[in-house]
């Protein structure tokens, strides 16, 4: 590992001096757009357990080595090798890192003193935070809301539900992806750090989790279904367990109770989701066979 790494460093140092004296290379708008679209389409095309999106990063910049290091095969090979490192982020929000790497590579080819380490540490240092931001805002908040709306429309017997979800999500996510990537390319390291350390992003994440949790509460009320049909005989009259007792105490207490129990098993008891699923099936069988719920 080490000799190869040192060799890379030396190639780069030589290269840096050479290019500094000769003409500069710069990426055209088309180069940047092409890298963005290749990333957007192919980031996960070879998703794997060892290095996740590594070859996705390389593929997205496959047109760069020849452009940045014309005629310098050594530098081209070094470029390919340094972008085969482990990489895994949320591709829409995390695209800001890819955009930034693009601008770092451009600066480096023009002689800036940016060692391999710098590019790699930027990638590995930022991929986690942006995956966290992306997953919270998108999969944790936006997607459940859009799905809930779509499901509401579709389960009422309207085929447009799927389209409402799909089109809205595609427009929002591709817009975010484009803005993030271009911002990463234009503002570079400082811009990205500003996003991460700024209070606005923290506030947005905090607000998103509050909104997400509230919507999840609403979803529980609408879609976790457990209605009792049991009747308790009281002499001549019959008392309905659901409408006369449970609803008077707290409407929807069975679904809410089951959901909170599920959360307790997952979060506090740290059970695997498949185990919890099994427990829910057993609860369902007990409730169904005894006729408490039906």
């Amino acid at each position: 590992m080490l000799p190869q790494y040192l060799q890379l460093m030396m190639t780069f140092n030589n290269k840096g001096e050479n290019i500094n004296m000769e003409n500069k290379v710069s990426l055209s708008k088309k180069d940047v757009l092409s890298a963005f679209w290749k990333w957007t389409f192919f980031s996960h095309a070879n998703y794997n357990y060892e290095r996740l999106q590594a070859s996705g990063v390389l593929f997205s910049m496959s047109h760069l080595p020849k452009k940045l290091y014309p005629g310098d095969e050594k530098a081209q090979k070094a470029f390919m090798q340094r972008h085969m490192q482990f990489y895994n982020t949320e591709p829409h929000f995390g695209g800001i890192i890819n955009g930034m790497v693009l601008s770092m590579e451009e600066a480096r080819a023009n002689g800036a003193d940016i060692p391999d380490d710098a590019i790699n540490s930027v990638k590995t240092g930022l991929m986690g935070p942006f995956a966290g931001i992306g997953d919270t805002l998108w999969q944790g908040t936006l997607q459940p809301i859009l799905l809930a709306v779509g499901i509401g429309i579709a389960s009422a017997g309207n085929m447009l539900g799927a389209a409402v979800f799909g089109v809205t999500e595609a427009i929002i996510m591709l817009t975010i992806a484009y803005i993030m990537y271009m911002r990463g390319y234009k503002t570079g390291k400082e811009g990205v750090q500003a996003i991460l350390s700024g209070g606005k992003m923290k506030q947005l994440i905090a607000a998103a989790s509050i909104m997400g949790a509230t919507v999840l509460g609403s979803l529980t009320a609408s879609y976790v279904k457990a209605q009792s049909t049991m009747n308790i005989p009281l002499g001549q009259a019959q008392l309905s367990l659901q409408t006369d007792i449970l609803d008077k105490l707290f409407k929807g207490m069975i679904p809410l109770g089951i959901t909170l129990l599920t959360l307790y098993l997952l979060k506090d008891k740290q059970l695997k989701s498949t185990t919890v699923m099994g427990i829910l099936v057993i609860i369902g069988i007990i409730l169904g066979v005894t006729g408490i719920v039906g």
Partner: peptide, 8 residues
Amino acid sequence: VIGGILPA
């Protein structure tokens, strides 16, 4: 019944 509570 199981299908009703699995969304939880």
